[in-house]
């Protein structure tokens, strides 16, 4: 059942889509039928995959950079008092400015190539990662810290052996959110100005009334995002086997 459920959901959604197309009689340049989109995907697979690879690279690079910067910021805020005083306002301001509004600027500064999209994704990811990890680092069980003190542990050693591992679950929630929003950053970057990527392909197809290709690109983006999320989820789960899962596997009917 676990394996079949997503397939059944997918089939149901496609059937619904087909029903809407048939019943409303919408022309293909407004809402193409599922089959036409599949056909478009098949015909243009090489182009779509090429653009998808670029978008995937932007997302992954943004994710890596955002996670590294975010983790470093959270760590320095947790360890150095002045860093907390100076970085925290910057963090809040960085969130108050809508990142999408910065997209044209980023394109102006970093060019039409991959760099501006990576910067965009990095900016979007930076905040959830920093906020979640910093929260986790601040909420170490006080008893553990007392224990470490009675064991004559240095601050650095307590951070390394107690506070960081204790904050990993919080960091992983931050990374999950980041993984979900990263594709948005990359695609918005591509919309604002680019000559490649799934976002570019969608705009390009839209302008030429190739709505079926646009849907095919959108579908590819969705699959990419979902695959990325589940990969991240699995990796994080494997990395922290001690975490209890409050949703037991056993409540699924066999």
């Amino acid at each position: 059942m676990r394996v079949w459920r997503p397939l059944i959901i997918l089939t149901g959604l496609i059937a619904l889509w087909q029903a809407v197309v048939s019943l409303s009689g919408a022309p293909p340049y407004i809402l193409p039928a599922p089959f036409e989109v599949a056909l478009a995907w098949w015909r243009r697979a090489d182009v779509i995959m090429e653009h998808a690879a670029l978008t995937a690279a932007e997302i992954l690079l943004g994710l890596a950079l955002g996670a590294v910067f975010g983790a470093c910021s959270a760590l320095s805020m947790a360890y150095f008092r002045p860093a907390r005083r100076w970085l925290l306002p910057v963090l809040v301001i960085s969130q108050a400015v809508p990142v999408f509004a910065l997209a044209p600027l980023l394109v102006l500064w970093f060019g039409y190539g991959i760099a501006s999209k990576v910067a965009m994704a990095t900016l979007i990811i930076y905040f959830p990662v920093t906020a979640a990890f910093h929260d986790g680092l601040r909420r170490t069980e006080p008893g553990w810290l007392d224990l470490a003190r009675t064991m004559n542990a240095s601050r650095a050693s307590t951070l390394r052996h107690v506070r960081i591992p204790a904050a990993l679950p919080a960091l992983s929630s931050g990374l999950r959110v980041a993984t979900a929003v990263a594709p948005i950053g990359a695609v918005v970057g591509e919309w604002v100005g680019s000559s490649a990527g799934l976002g570019y392909l969608m705009l390009h197809a839209n302008a030429r009334m190739q709505i079926d290709v646009m849907f095919a690109a959108l579908f590819t983006l969705a699959v990419l995002a979902v695959a990325l999320y589940f990969t991240m989820d699995t990796v994080l789960r494997r990395a922290m086997p001690w975490l209890p899962d409050s949703v037991p596997d056993t409540d699924e009917s066999p």
């Binding site: 008893g143 553990w144 007392d146 224990l147 009675t150 004559n152 107690v162 204790a166 990993l168 001690w242």
Partner: peptide, 16 residues
Amino acid sequence: SGRAAFMAQTDLLLPW
């Protein structure tokens, strides 16, 4: 300081 060991009501074991 540094010569007393501590045992609390909760075990304070690190879960990882």
